[in-house]
Design a protein around this nucleic acid. Structure first.
Lengths: 409, 409
DNA sequence: ATAAAAATTTTAAAACTCATTTTTAAATAC
DNA sequence: GTATTTAAAAATGAGTTTTAAAATTTTTAT
């Protein structure tokens, strides 16, 4: 991999400005040409020229006229959000979720299909195609209205080729998702890890900006993180950046599926919560959980513990508090390494809400080494269960809006 | 901190190209104009124009003529390396090191001054000024030959303002190093954390390129890391990115100065090695160390353990092996979070060489979750004890050579 | 009505890169 | 030794896009 020289050229100059203007309209719109010029330091003619092209391509529309500040009324520009659409797919352990969003990333259509346990690669691809055809039909929009398909997939993904390198839940290797879908639907396809897609989605639709370093944590069956640096998801050398589920925090902790002891996910992921609950219940602790599962401890899982906690079960609440403490230790390690502005907690565990978040916050406050870093915001996901699917759409949106940044083609 | 829009402009276009050409000459030189044009995809006139400016400013010189491939001889261009110089300062616990390098980062002058224990901020600044005057006099070069002063300082540094926010070894706060030195010497001053400076130095003078993600680890009194992402040191929101010394890896480990238990540096830094040695010797173990310190266990430190290990002391060798294992666990966590291409081990511990590195490698190989990531290179520092000081020079060099990238001024 | 002020548009100039040609210089073939 | 070929570097003019300034449009204030 040799250095790619990005030379300065007129195309580069223009694509940067196009990007800047498009993003200004997206994030600050409705906005007038004059305001764009002021805020970007571009000159009025430059803005006018590029806006003309954006109007021609239908990505932007002139909407209302604003009120005058003592002169000609400004003509407001807005993203023509409902003229183009994006397909997002979130491949989960038991189902695949399909969504369609507009250019603002707003949900306009959704669909869920079940998948069999431990599917083969081929079945997965076929299921994805099936769902795409179904949801497209449901929406009734012409195919050329779609800018592309984004796919969020758990496990390790080569984002350059769009191949799912390894998916632990399915035990599959090297599924060429991008190639297969691009061939079938002939549009742009991007594939990304689910935690990373979630993070991108939260960043894009929250108030993330290019300066922010945010980290998104997906706590479910495992624990994964997405790291945004200077407006881009950070991949690392082998696409495993963010695999914090296997961060060792307790050398004498429980054994993990990876073979090591005391990985974060053996202490704080969904199955870990269930395991601890079962163990303590067998040891004679009493809890509402026993009633909920009607005595069958095999049925205990994270969601059931959350439910009991919400209904006031003290045993479950204490269990979740402990989980929050473990997670807090993992996040403190992360803050000492990455030092993000904000950490977003998503995935199944976010249903446990305050029980986990409060003790997590306390733990971080107690352990972090500098006062400044104590200000790190810890917030729950805004997009909830749709975060990864919408984030998958943002893969395409980002490419569209920040296309000018892709200077090294 | 709001988004900074970098607009496309003629200056940007040209400064990018200037940068590209300058770096091409630096990394591939001696090189002809024609070759630059070929490799950068710039056209010959563009290259010629910019090269003319670089020749005028004396940063580049025409050197020998190459041999012809059946036509006019190419005129080779090279960086005019010994026409301009950079000052680098490494502020250690007990001494300050001053170096001067040329434009290639090659050492041309060095000097060491002792500092008193726990100095005041003012004394430190005065000592730095004193050393700069001394080494400048030693070199006998005109002041305008210096492009700037780079400072590597342990602890937490605000690189934007050049303020040492906190230096644990001195217990000082908010020393305005950049301001003071810029006032005294009226030239560009950059300040950076020592582990980060070390990493930058290794990246620049090794074979780092823009695509590489490398991490440098400085293991001495504490443990710090520098993270390079896309050719820049990663700072995080509060400049504490890379503070991996306080990464918890063993919940039931020894107490750390920060108040937590089982921080990486309580297990793998210099003082930790010494502590473990003392404890085990008191418990009755026998070792060459006892002879070296002539029975005075107070005198045991990391360096002495290294010495004993090198001389064949099995007790010390085993101790270092154990240290390597702890460090390996910390680095595995880092790989699962950052996933760099290469990790460079520097600082005092690099004197312990193979004893630590071998068991460190083994530990990582055993614990990492994907085969691809097992390929992560772990290498010792090339620049050794000068790494931070030379890295400090690279702060200025990088600004000079990649100046075109500083588009948001 | 008239003046002032703000939002666009128009126009011309400037800053570059880009494609092509020309000049220079050396190597090789005859 | 001369002509031919090849390649490097410089020169020329065209093309793209920003930039600066002026003109136009539209509205509010006097």
């Amino acid at each position: 991999m040799s250095t790619k020289y990005t030379r300065g050229s007129f195309q580069l100059m223009k694509s940067i400005n196009r990007s800047v203007i498009l993003n200004m309209i997206r994030s600050k719109g409705p906005i007038s040409r004059a305001d764009i010029a002021k805020q970007t330091n571009l000159t009025p003619p430059t803005v006018s020229n590029i806006v003309k092209e954006l109007l021609d391509s239908q990505f932007v529309v002139e909407t209302t006229q604003g009120s005058s500040q003592g002169g000609r009324k400004p003509t407001y520009l807005e993203i023509n959000a409902n003229q183009f659409f994006i397909m997002g797919i979130d491949v989960g352990r038991y189902h695949i979720k399909f969504v369609i969003t507009n250019l603002y990333g707003e949900l306009v259509e959704q669909l869920m299909l079940d998948i069999q346990a431990q599917p083969e690669a081929n079945d997965l691809i076929e299921k994805m195609k099936e769902g795409i055809y179904q949801i497209m039909q449901k929406g009734g929009r012409n195919k050329d209205k779609y800018l592309g398909i984004g796919v969020a997939m758990h496990g390790i993904v080569d984002v350059n080729t769009g191949v799912s390198l390894f998916a632990p839940s399915f035990q599959t290797h090297n599924i060429p998702i991008q190639e297969e879908l691009a061939k079938e639907f002939s549009m742009m396809v991007h594939v990304e890890n689910d935690a990373k897609a979630m993070t991108l989605g939260e960043w894009w639709l929250g108030n993330g900006n290019d300066e922010d370093n945010i980290v998104g944590i997906n706590v479910g069956h495992g624990i994964g993180a997405g790291i945004m640096i200077r407006g881009e998801l950070f991949q690392g050398a082998n696409f495993i950046a963010g695999e914090i589920g296997h961060m060792t925090i307790d050398l004498s902790g429980p054994k993990c599926s990876c073979g090591n002891y005391g990985c974060l996910q053996t202490l704080a992921a969904g199955p870990a919560i269930a395991q601890r609950a079962i163990k303590e219940l067998k040891a004679g602790n009493t809890s509402m959980i026993t009633d909920i599962v009607q005595g069958d401890l095999e049925r205990v899982n994270g969601e059931i513990v959350f439910e009991a906690a919400t209904r006031g079960d003290e045993f479950s609440q204490e269990l979740l508090k402990q989980t929050g403490r473990y997670l807090g230790i993992g996040l403190t390690n992360l803050i000492h390494t990455i030092n993000p502005n904000r950490i977003i907690i998503g995935g199944g565990v976010s249903h446990a809400g305050e029980f986990i978040l409060d003790s997590l916050q306390e733990t971080i406050q107690a352990r972090i080494i500098t006062d400044a870093a104590k200000e790190t915001e810890i917030v729950p996901s805004q997009l909830g269960d749709n975060a990864s699917a919408i984030g998958a759409c943002v893969l395409i949106l980002q490419n569209f809006f920040h296309g000018g940044k892709q200077v090294s083609q």
